[in-house]
Design a protein around this nucleic acid. Structure first.
Lengths: 130, 130
DNA sequence: ACAACTCTTACGAAGCGTAATTGTGG
DNA sequence: TCCACAATTACGCTTCGTAAGAGTTG
């Protein structure tokens, strides 16, 4: 009597659709695929993205926000796929995160110095105009 | 009776010498020349850098510290050469400086956000390990 | 027949690093 | 003759943007 069990319609997307959803360009999605970070299915030649692809893109975008190169993000995704909860890999990841954190702090210092130098220049300019 | 007046020996450099002096590579000097920011003299085919070239490099390095693209730095050097104290150009320069300042502040905010996100992740990792 | 997409291929950009090959002066 | 630099040419790297040309589908 119960209706046959059904998975909720798994949403599918074309490049343009998924791109719009995530705020990136179709070009970016194709590029990530070319670099081995995505592997959407195809309907003929047309790319078809599943929820899984969408989830991967979410991770990719996070990696980018944190400033990691695509190469590193791909490695991370591969471990992730391997489903290996190996502590060694996890340790490596944490190491990378820590390293990136140091880099970011260094960049911030560099920016602060540049800002200071710029303000000094503006100061000179003001004097020169007196 | 007085010795003939003499300019103090103007120092000259080869690529490698000037590069070492300024902490850059010879490749960089040649690259800037290719991009029209420098124009050293030649002794045959060998580049000869004068004090003037050295001074220009100092300005170039400053522009780089502030994060300006070489294209902009070159424009600036050209105005500088034109010796035109024109207020209009000066105003444009100040505008660029101001714009760059805004950009730097924006970058710093972005970095702060990335740092916050990274710390949040580290936090999760610690929890996951409990 | 046509609009609206999609696909692939490939050059451009920024700032040099890194060969590879060929002088050239001492 | 040989060493140490110098010069030129050009591909590599990173992340897509931007055509360009061709095929597909409703």
């Amino acid at each position: 009597m119960a209706e046959p069990l059904q998975m909720p319609e798994a949403q599918l997307y074309t490049v343009t659709e998924l791109a719009r959803e995530l705020g990136v360009t179709p070009r970016a999605l194709r590029f990530y695929e070319d670099k081995g970070l995505l592997a959407p299915k195809r309907a003929g030649t047309t790319r078809i993205y599943t929820q899984r692809d969408r989830a991967r893109m979410t991770l990719i975008l996070r990696g980018k926000r944190l400033g990691f190169p695509l190469r590193d993000i791909r490695e991370y995704l591969e471990l992730y796929d391997a489903g290996d909860g190996g502590r060694a890999q996890n340790a490596k990841l944490r190491e990378k995160l820590q390293h990136r954190l140091d880099q970011l702090r260094a960049q911030r210092r560099a920016i602060d110095e540049a800002i200071a130098e710029l303000r000094a220049i503006e100061g000179q300019a003001r004097e020169a105009l007196r």
